[in-house]
Design a protein around this nucleic acid. Structure first.
Length: 564
RNA sequence: GCGCGGUUAGCUCAGUUGGAUAGAGCGCAAGCCUCCGAAGCUUGAGGUCACAGGUUCGAAUCCUGUACCGCGCACCA
């Protein structure tokens, strides 16, 4: 519908412009005031300068030439030169049948330019349970994936497991110390050791499956290796369970360790070498920041500055092993080789300093600019009754994601994480999220859905069913009904924009608005009345509303209950 | 010092990539259930869009600078 209007305007504008002149992007907006019509265009104002005529004159020229599609009732010039378009009432209510016919697929598209997208998110280190910040990234990534799928893309949800490197060694050592402690030894735990309870659990499990004496006799390096792997497996198991509790499943778990073992990291470094993109050099100390143990060392460096980064980056550590960065380059290179049209990464904001170098590396290896797209999800401030909850990892007292999900529920957690843009910080109050109060938008939306279901049940009891496609809906003429219809019409537009701009939170704010429009309508008008036609029309309207609420909640991964 | 993100009502946040009179929730004030679900609705008060310049028909939105807040800044991940 929107496209057909845009096409008509574009054609008229083409006639006004001389050959070769560039056409501004045609953008129809939904005016805030209903007097301004159903859609509005600022095209005349945009063209005014090019044509050297006042905007209102341009608007008149446009209107004289444009051939509107059937759905347009009238179009007029307003204000400085806006073109306000009014649709035929019947053409808007048509959306009700579209919704009811298409059901849970309403709003989805079968994209002509379907992309294969690799969406990497969470990727929390397997050194312990996830915290609330990971949870936000998890929900943002999961919903974004659903949005992209809805508009017709093929999305792979992928988790990169950092199961290699020094941190795994530290984890293994921490577990080993706990194992010895469980055997009665008095241990002085170093600052660096992981403090959490879960470390003890892992230690206990390992002692149960192999006698302590065997562990003692084992070669130290081998023991470290085995314990490290076991600890990673145990942590990943917990992480998967916690993600499942949030309703999140991945298609691929990609292991960094496998990446090293398969030789892909070294191969990638060779590839860069052969292209002359690496050199051996010494990095200067970082400016403005104290690095107490800085020592000038010769390292193998990638020429990131040639590709937009502001500093060259090391590929090998002092001991000759690859850096995390090197593995990450190989990982993204691997994604590229697997044939994805597009890569999207969802990271915590604390990794922001990393964006330029990864994009630089991808560009160097594949020639693709601006890939991967990276969403930086800002921090979550966790509070309870307004007081900050300490999240000290050192003390091992941080609140885990699982505890929060268990306490406030999956739906409330997911919805609350989606109510704000990813790049603004999020306050999350445990007490309020649980309260089921006005502060909690998830219940507001779910309530609207349950309420509609209650009305539909009542109608069914009375033997009344919603109208059938083709019936006259002109009685849906009140302000509230029109708004509701308009909101239904906007659902596909909203999804489109959310996908295009990688802004999944739009689905949540849309759901709140749709629920609000329904509640307003509900309070002003009764659905089931003496008038048969009116009743049937309104039943069709609320059934369509229920469907769209359900679709939006489905994308959010939130339940759409029939009763509450 | 540099980079990234942020700054909009008392609080928490939207604002359709530069459009018409800047919106919503909470809180505050006042109303609404004999009636399909009050976990809801209606009305009101509340704004120098951090500040200063600039760009143009037009700026919360774009450019420059400043001030605060958050995150990050070799050989960790």
């Amino acid at each position: 519908m929107k496209e057909s209007l845009e096409r008509a305007l574009r054609k008229a504008a083409r006639e006004l412009l001389a050959n070769g002149e560039t056409m501004p992007e045609i953008r129809l907006t939904r005016p805030k005031l209903r007097e301004h019509g159903d859609y509005a265009s600022n095209l005349a104002l945009q063209l005014s300068r090019q044509l050297g005529k006042p905007p209102r004159q341009v608007a008149e020229d446009l209107l004289a030439r444009v051939v509107w599609p059937q759905v347009v009732a009238s179009a007029e010039i307003a204000g400085p030169g806006f073109i306000n378009i009014h649709l035929r009432q019947a053409s808007e209510t048509q959306v009700i049948w579209d919704v009811l016919r298409q059901g849970h697929t309403y709003g989805c598209r079968s994209q002509q330019e379907r992309q294969k997208i690799c969406l990497e998110f969470v990727s929390a280190n397997p050194t312990g349970p996830m915290h609330v910040g990971h949870g936000r990234g998890a929900v943002v990534g999961d919903v974004l994936a659903s949005v992209l799928q809805a508009v017709g893309h093929e999305v792979t949800r992928e988790y990169y497991i950092n199961d290699a490197g020094a941190q795994i060694g530290v984890l293994a050592d921490s577990v080993w110390l706990r194992m010895r402690e469980l055997q009665g030894e008095v241990i002085d735990f170093p600052e660096s050791a992981y403090p959490g309870e879960y470390v003890i659990d892992i230690a206990r499990t390992l002692l149960a499956c192999r006698p302590y004496a065997e562990w003692q006799e084992m070669d130290a390096d081998l023991r470290r290796e085995i314990i490290g792997q076991a600890a990673v497996d145990a942590n990943m198991k917990v992480i998967r369970e916690d993600l499942a509790a949030l309703g999140i499943e991945f298609d691929v778990f990609f292991s960094e360790r496998e990446l090293h073992r398969s030789g892909k990291v070294l191969a990638m470094i060779e590839e860069l070498k052969s292209r002359g993109l690496v050199y051996t050099g010494i990095l200067p100390p970082p400016k403005g920041k104290e690095v107490e143990d800085y020592r000038p060392v010769e390292q193998l460096l990638f020429r990131a500055t040639d590709f937009g980064d502001d500093c060259d980056r090391p590929l090998l550590k002092q001991d000759g092993s690859p850096t995390y960065f090197a593995a990450d380059i190989a990982y993204h290179h691997d994604k590229h080789l697997r044939g994805f049209d597009r890569m999207i990464d969802v990271w915590g904001a604390d990794h922001g300093g990393y964006v330029a170098r990864v994009q630089a590396a991808v560009r160097a290896l594949t020639g693709r600019v601006g890939q991967p797209d990276i969403l930086l999800v800002q921090m979550v401030n966790l509070t309870r009754d307004g007081k900050p909850v300490r999240m000290s990892k050192r003390a091992g007292t941080f609140v885990t994601l699982r505890e929060v999900v268990d306490e406030v529920g999956r739906d409330a957690v997911r919805f609350n994480f989606m109510t704000r843009r990813a790049e603004s910080q999020l306050d999350f109050d445990l007490a309020k999220a649980k309260e089921q109060s006005d502060e909690n938008p998830v219940y507001y939306v779910q309530y609207a859905h349950a309420r509609i279901c209650a009305i539909l049940r009542k109608a069914a009891d009375l033997g009344i069913s919603p109208g059938k496609e083709g019936m006259d809906l002109s009685c849906l003429a009140s302000h509230e009904e029109k708004r509701l219809v308009k909101a239904l019409l906007e659902y596909p537009e909203m999804l489109e924009k959310a996908a295009q701009r990688l802004e999944p939170y739009r689905v949540a704010t849309y759901a709140m608005r749709l629920a609000a429009d329904f509640h307003s309508f509900y309070h002003k008008y009764r659905v089931i009345t003496e008038h048969k036609k009116e009743t049937e029309a309104r039943l069709a309207l609320i059934q369509a509303t229920r469907q769209v609420l359900s679709n939006a909640l489905g994308i959010l991964g939130v339940d759409a209950p029939e009763r509450m």
